[in-house]
Nucleic acid binder design. Structure first.
Length: 198
DNA sequence: TAGGCCATCTGGTCCT
DNA sequence: AGGACCAGATGGCCTA
């Protein structure tokens, strides 16, 4: 479960990439780099005899290696972002969340889950039931705050600074059909409330 | 066409 | 010394 994010540390093996990463990096067109490199190499070869000193070659090789590492690092970051998108509620008709939207929506979503637990905690305290503890397992066990699955907002809450939107009874993030409540929010569309938290 | 998003390159800085 | 991380720059693609 949480292993999705526990392994997203830098240089982890979970999202290891091979050296032929370039073929994948140019999803959006991009990457005129190989051609430029070839042109530069041609220029150097054509230029006066031994223009490249050994130090320059070493320096260039270091740069190329650093570029490769940086590329892989960013790919790892994007993979982690994709993993995050994977556990967030998604709807078929929605286009892929941008990076910033993903982060902001995740922030909101975590906040919403926390609120759900907190409210469930309060209700349990009123009824005399044993209080629920804030633990990851409760994300599965937390009862729906309302019968419609969308009965709360942050307006009545105390210290919350996040916007009022609904995200109750999350269940397992791996079941997108459980997130229909997000579509029931009248004002905030699924995508519209993701960027606007700051 | 402007603006948003993205991938990549690059040089600097910090850490091991 | 080499790798990781970061931020700025650049250029391509897409959409309103």
């Amino acid at each position: 479960m949480d292993s999705v994010f526990s392994d997203t540390d830098t240089s982890c093996d979970l999202f290891q990439h091979t050296d032929d990463e370039d073929s994948r990096g140019s999803v959006r067109g991009a990457s005129p780099q190989p051609d430029q490199q070839q042109l530069q190499q041609k220029k150097r070869r054509r230029g006066r005899g031994r223009s490249d000193s050994t130090a320059q070659v070493v320096k260039k090789n270091r740069r190329l290696k650093a570029n490769d590492r940086e590329r892989n690092r960013m790919h790892n970051l994007n993979d982690a972002l994709d993993a995050l998108r994977g556990v967030l509620p998604a709807f078929p008709d929605e286009t892929k969340l941008t990076k910033i939207e993903t982060l902001r929506f995740a922030h909101n979503y975590i906040w919403a889950l926390s609120e759900t637990i907190r409210i469930a905690d309060l209700q349990a305290g009123k009824t005399g039931d044993p209080p629920l503890l804030l633990s990851p397992s409760l994300l599965v066990e937390a009862p729906s705050p309302g019968s419609d699955g969308c009965s709360w907002s942050s307006s009545g809450s105390s210290s919350s600074s996040s916007p009022a939107y609904c995200a109750s009874s999350p269940g397992s993030p791996s079941a997108p059909e459980d997130y229909s409540f997000l579509q029931q929010v009248p004002v905030f569309g699924f995508r519209s409330f993701a960027p606007g938290i700051y």
